[in-house]
Design a protein around this nucleic acid. Sequence first.
DNA 1: CTTGCCCCTGACGCACGCGTCAGGGGTTAC
DNA 2: GTAACCCCTGACGCGTGCGTCAGGGGCAAG
Lengths: 131, 131
Amino acid sequence: MRIGDAAAAAGTTPRALRFYEQRGLLPPPTRTPSGQREYGPGEVARVRAIRQLLAAGLTVDDLVSRAHRFDLLDEDPPRRCCAADSGPETFAPVVSARLAALDAEITRLTSLRNKLARLAATGDTDEPDED
Amino acid sequence: MRIGDAAAAAGTTPRALRFYEQRGLLPPPTRTPSGQREYGPGEVARVRAIRQLLAAGLTVDDLVSRAHRFDLLDEDPPRRCCAADSGPETFAPVVSARLAALDAEITRLTSLRNKLARLAATGDTDEPDED
DNA sequence: CTTGCCCCTGACGCACGCGTCAGGGGTTAC
DNA sequence: GTAACCCCTGACGCGTGCGTCAGGGGCAAG
């Protein structure tokens, strides 16, 4: 399977696969004698797992920081990667960190939204917000 | 008043003032014969107004799109800029657009957060989310 | 052999609000 | 006069996950 088909099978693009490889999320695949990458179904499953985690709000760096245990993702649905078994070797720490970051961002945007709504309603802000 | 003092009076930096000017949010100020910018209290008030709107979640482009009516901001608290008088010449349209964008972003981050929380709890996502 | 599609690497682009550095000149106080 | 500090313009940096272009080679079909 060459990169185009593998990318399509994983629901993404060749560029993304090369990017993941470059960032250390995918192991360097075998190459044909002419240098073309060759992927198997295992690699495709791994890419799907990566994309699930990225879609869930983790960053590439989050995954890279746990890349040494990334074989945990080598089953199609990433069940054992970040669930109840919260050992330091799993994704639990980065997941909870990302959860906290998301909560902070949601809080920030919500207060921003309220501030803007007040501005629209009354034309004034209440907290001078010394900057 | 030179740029450093004006920036400090407005609670920001010289770089920001030059940036606003370059983007068309501030009119080009008068210059000393040697080319240095000279600001008065009116400019400072305008900068404060700009910063309030930016802090409220509007983007520079939002303000630029209404720059032709930017004199509405020439009083210290920007009362008349986006409040109940919702004429097309005010900031009301961009404010409501930004409100909608903020709501969309908050919704997106919240669902992301929930997805991630489910992933952490069960190790699975429910919506395959075809991509 | 040639056409056409896919692959390779390397590098820039994007959105946003400035921060920061480089290289050169003005302004003020001693 | 000169040190110390401020100002000028122009240009790159940042963070994120790739998209996209450039220039060159591989692979299968007619």
